[in-house]
Design a protein around this nucleic acid. Structure first.
Lengths: 122, 122
DNA sequence: CGCCTATTTTACCACAAGGTTAAATACGCA
DNA sequence: TGCGTATTTAACCTTGTGGTAAAATAGGCG
């Protein structure tokens, strides 16, 4: 797997269990047992997911007796969202479709020779 | 890998090569050869990355003679960003830190008994 | 100490990811 | 038809991921 921060963040988010864990943590701190409760999954599996989230800096662990409470750390999400933001113009006003359309038109009008018997239908 | 749309989108973004491809496509349509040029990677590898991007609906392929041009489709990014947006309040105003701090304080003040010799330092 | 609870570590497994090379396919064109 | 260019498919390899069960660790408490 790629190890740059953005890749690590996106990879952490690319799993429904982990996203659910984050959602749960948005409501406040929780223990591993708490977190595992909604899932049909053993604890070690949750521990692993937490490791991934920690690795992405999305979860911070505490230590209270034998509990190792988890809490949300959202900062990496900002970077993720900032990266995505550069594409905003492509979905606002259906610009991606529009752009595609314009490029098609442009393509068909280009006097490129050999255009006569190219597949005109696209 | 999980197959729900959000997971597929995030997984597609969790690779620097694929993000670079998207960035390139933001400047306009490109062929596979164009796309592979900046990378020290064989074409089949690029083809695979494109498959992943297509699977996530982030890239659309055309067909012009032996070229299969790629173009950006940004709509799935909106859903990704919308999902992340629900956590915005946690990073704005350092709310995640603040929250962590408050929970610590709260914890220390909780008259939970046995608090006397707990690790007070944290 | 010895037990109980919470959590992690240690193998282990099946399968997906990300690469490679070599062969196959798709089209345009002489 | 047959060659050349663009791209994909097939087969393979190595590593990572998501899960398991069983054993190890950590800490409070009688």
């Amino acid at each position: 797997m790629a190890t740059d921060p953005l890749s690590v963040t996106f990879a952490a988010l690319a799993d429904p269990t982990r996203r659910a864990i984050l959602k749960r943590l948005a409501r406040g701190e929780a223990s591993v047992t708490d977190l595992s409760e909604p899932f049909d999954m053993t604890m070690p599996a949750i521990t692993k997911h937490l490791k991934v989230l920690q690795g992405a800096g999305l979860v911070e662990r505490g230590r209270r007796a034998q509990w190792r409470p988890c809490r949300l750390r959202a900062r990496p999400l900002k970077r993720a969202t900032d990266w995505i933001a550069q594409y905003r113009r492509f979905w606002e006003e259906s610009l991606d479709r529009l752009d595609a359309f314009l490029q098609d038109v442009q393509e068909k009008e280009k006097p490129k020779g050999a255009r006569r018997h190219g597949q005109t239908k696209v």
